[in-house]
């Protein structure tokens, strides 16, 4: 009987090895453990054994049953896994069919760039100031050291509402407004619309945007101006970007500079984008003119500061490779969707 049990055990193991499906597994179970199964038959024959043999064989029979049951459970899990795998395999879809999208809109590309620039400055402790589009001659010119007969007025073709009220030609008047309302330390930027009577073409628009910057504190130096602009340019164009300051003239800063950034297309070697120069002019800057500080109620013997102004359209055009300013104001969705 022992041998018989051992045979059954082996036969069961063999049968189970060959099992591939759930049905096959069930028939194996029935064959060995079913009411008319082989093992069951052996157990039924236990009555013929001597009382001494019975516990021994009984134990062996139980072991064989446990063994077969264990095997069946094992196999069951394996078969289930296999069947699931087969099912999953049959459920293939074409993942290259386009997804079902909830379409979000986009911020205007110009304001995306403005947000980026604003974030760089707010991260450096700058706040954001605002001023009116329609401005007085005083704030736009007089207070900025541009008196009535100043030739600089010719370079900024102004839209007039009347003798005293104009459309601001620059965001610089916000400098004065901030100085009047705030005690140093001042660190602010003032983005906004400006207006000049330039006829519309690919690079001119009567409406465009500037970002003014102003820092006033004790001991602010031109080296600080350079360091700050360098940090901003690296934030905008990456860690390899460099700046170059060239002496220039603005009535409300002294010394004044035009600031170039190393060409982001060629890195400064010279290419079509920078017209072979390796540099692209992006902003004007300088140390706040003592006369302007005084107008703003700040003592130039105690405080110094720097100011800068950058053209948002120009920066965005370079950033995105846009060659026509008019696109910004046309707002064609085929354009807006690209950003």
């Amino acid at each position: 009987m022992k041998e018989q049990l051992e045979k059954i055990r082996q036969a069961a193991a063999q049968a189970l090895d060959a099992v591939e499906t759930g049905e096959a597994l069930e028939s194996v179970r029935v064959r060995f453990l079913g009411k008319k199964g082989e093992l069951t038959a052996v157990l039924r024959g236990m009555g013929a054994l001597t009382p001494e043999e019975r516990p021994v064989v009984g134990q062996l029979a139980n072991e064989a049953r446990a063994y077969i049951e264990g095997k069946i459970e094992e196999k069951k899990a394996a078969v289930a896994a296999k069947e699931r795998e087969a099912k999953l395999k049959s459920e293939v879809i074409d993942v290259t069919v386009p997804g079902r999208r909830k379409l979000a809109g986009r911020l205007h590309p110009l304001y995306q760039v403005l947000n980026e620039i604003t974030a760089i400055f707010t991260g450096m402790g700058f706040s954001v100031a605002e001023g009116p589009d329609i401005e007085t001659d005083y704030y736009n010119f007089e207070a900025l050291n541009i008196p009535a007969d100043h030739p600089a007025r010719d370079t900024q073709d102004t839209f007039y509402i009347n003798d005293n009220i104009i459309l601001r030609t620059q965001t610089s008047p916000v400098q004065i407004r901030v100085m009047e309302q705030t005690k140093p330390p001042i660190r602010m930027i003032a983005p906004g619309r400006v207006f000049r009577s330039d006829a519309v073409d690919a690079t001119h628009s009567p409406v465009f945007h500037q970002i003014e910057g102003l820092v006033i504190d004790k001991g602010i130096t031109m080296a600080d101006l350079k360091g700050t602009l360098e940090a901003v340019v690296k934030g905008l164009y990456g860690p390899d970007a460099k700046i170059r300051l060239r002496p220039h003239h603005f009535p409300f800063t002294e010394p004044s500079a035009e600031v170039d950034v190393s060409c982001f297309a060629c890195g400064g070697k010279g290419c079509g984008m920078c017209k072979g120069e390796g540099w692209i002019e992006i902003l004007g800057a300088g140390m706040v003119h003592p006369k302007v500080l005084k107008v703003g109620g700040i003592d130039p013997e105690v405080y110094s500061g720097f100011a800068f102004g950058l053209g948002l359209e120009r920066i965005a055009m370079f950033k995105y490779g846009i060659d026509d300013l008019r696109l910004f104001f046309e707002n064609d969705l085929r354009f807006l969707r690209q950003f």
Binding site: T118, F121, T122, G123, M124, G125, F126, S127, V128, P185, I186, R187, V215, D217, K218, G219, I220, T221, M222, A223, D224, K226, G227, T228, E230, A231, L245
Partner: peptide, 15 residues
């Protein structure tokens, strides 16, 4: 002219 970071009183800034 070197590039330096502004010294002086910190400002919190932001929107």
């Amino acid at each position: 002219i070197p590039s330096t970071l502004m010294s002086g009183q910190a400002t919190s800034g932001g929107l």
